[in-house]
Nucleic acid binder design. Sequence first.
DNA 1: TATAAAAATGACAGCGCTGTCAAAAGCGCA
DNA 2: TGCGCTTTTGACAGCGCTGTCATTTTTATA
Lengths: 336, 336
Amino acid sequence: MITKRSTINDVARLAGVSIKTVSRVFNREPNVRQSTRDKVIAAAETLNYRPNRSARQLASNLTFVIGMLYDNPNSDYVTEVQYGCLQVCREYGYNLLIHPCQADSPDLIDEIGGLQHQVDGFIVLQPVSDDQRLNQLLLENNIACVRVSQRPFEEFPWISVGDKEAADQMTEYLLDLGHRRVGFIIGHPDHGSSHDRLAGYRSALKRRDIRYDENLVAQGRFDLESGLSCARKLLSSTSRPTAIFASNDPMAMGVLSAAHEFGLDVPRQLSVAGFDDSPLARHAWPPLTTVRQPITEVARLATNVLMQQLQGRSEGDSNHRLQAELVCRASTGSPG
Amino acid sequence: MITKRSTINDVARLAGVSIKTVSRVFNREPNVRQSTRDKVIAAAETLNYRPNRSARQLASNLTFVIGMLYDNPNSDYVTEVQYGCLQVCREYGYNLLIHPCQADSPDLIDEIGGLQHQVDGFIVLQPVSDDQRLNQLLLENNIACVRVSQRPFEEFPWISVGDKEAADQMTEYLLDLGHRRVGFIIGHPDHGSSHDRLAGYRSALKRRDIRYDENLVAQGRFDLESGLSCARKLLSSTSRPTAIFASNDPMAMGVLSAAHEFGLDVPRQLSVAGFDDSPLARHAWPPLTTVRQPITEVARLATNVLMQQLQGRSEGDSNHRLQAELVCRASTGSPG
DNA sequence: TATAAAAATGACAGCGCTGTCAAAAGCGCA
DNA sequence: TGCGCTTTTGACAGCGCTGTCATTTTTATA
């Protein structure tokens, strides 16, 4: 049997107050006497009342939904971000609308334009967060958002992870192991973090007075196949590297495959390092030395910042920077 | 500058019709003259009108949102399902609300109970779809849903994938290669598909008149670690198997690691097969022979069936069965 | 041409809530 | 006790749409 869902009127009648008072209680507004509050809550409980979101949305012109914009082929990353975001959403009674999209799609702007009234704000992940048209759209329409990106855009709050520092650390770690020819595979050229990771690699070399050698660097695209072909190229060179640092884990997996092809033992003859600490990395053979990003933290933080924004409490400082961390496993060791 | 969003009234005024007619056009209702329809559409276009979902929801008592319930640690699977589901959702103007949950949580029922008014229906993935309390809740409250599961529940429509047949095929394939001692690692005991995959293994053995040997079978939990320990057990036995068929890819990765430990060459000394065709499988070394499930298809189908349901067009036959497919890669070969 | 039936359109209530503003109740203090 | 203040509560409009049902227009048929 389907019993009709109880409304604010039912609760008000049972509690002997006006519907407005019920509304106040459920919106945690001040200036409601405790005894009144209790009456209302009790009544709501007996009736198993739940506010009707649609009605609330219509009346308040709020959706209680936030949108998540992303174009990330890495499902582990996406899932983890979703998870962290949902945790915070639930605290605030918000729902999450996921919107995977193609950053290079010409329809992107229309698409998001249509979404804008369905959500109160957006969390925009890399690399979509670096799309200037999109940022402009959000800005012009005064849409609340938090960007996960390595670079600022206007006054938008943004969350960044110390990609450069982490890449620097990883490079330094490889140098500390005694490597002198450390290869590097750059990530997808459209991804902001690709540049930062490369910058980190370069800064560590520089600090150690090691010349940056273009022959040790190859341009990948963040997928295994590109990692494989880059590694083939690097390993075929006359002065082959004794370590290869790939800008993400799938590419590092490609390097591992190439090492197999070349009959190189990892890590004795070739050290391999990745970035992201995906499950892939843990499950590789040998398990991959990599960099762990605090993904859940990023997601939680981004969501919290957005919630603050939506509640009008915008912060002074709009950048929050988190640090990534080295995870040393068996794929790296001293050379020779 | 933020211009106020235009409403159905604006469109009606500009088109010179009543708001009800505008409503009809936007809901694709019949009985609107083409010329009227055109006028309305033109007016809507100039005003850049978009129906207000909240208002529509409130008035129609529909949410235009479907919920996706899952508890799946495999992010590739989840992401792919989300993707397929979203494709269909967009066609129908629906949004997707994801709700990862813990199948064994005591609060699950409350949680879903609270969600029920926020969505028009649910897509329930395994293993949540096999939770009897949840199914009962959905049934009692007459909530529309489509289950992705290997078994029926009452009259609910359900989508299943031929796990058993696929496992049978894979086993047969290994036998065809000449293996006589084929090990098997069972999946998580709470997962319906674990049983089916085991059943497929057994049926293939039986057809070939090969005795089912308990010593060749180990109980895993769908994760790499359990695959590793199961493989250690199987490989330590006096009559070690020449092939191991793990019920999913992470466990097969564990088997691969164990093979490394035991100094066994894959596939010359040990063939390894997985299930699911996760990216893991493609990226393993050697690349893993496995079973590909039509995940996107499952998701699309499930969503379509749900949409049919919501529109009152319930089908006669409520089960849709899709077939999985063998993917043969380099991790399997003839023994010896 | 008249008439019935079908198709197209509109008037209006109301979905369940929040915002606004006014009214009532409670409080401190002379 | 009464005054002015603050705190608490309520009445009511209206958010933008859809459902119902009445009305008008068109079409088919006699």
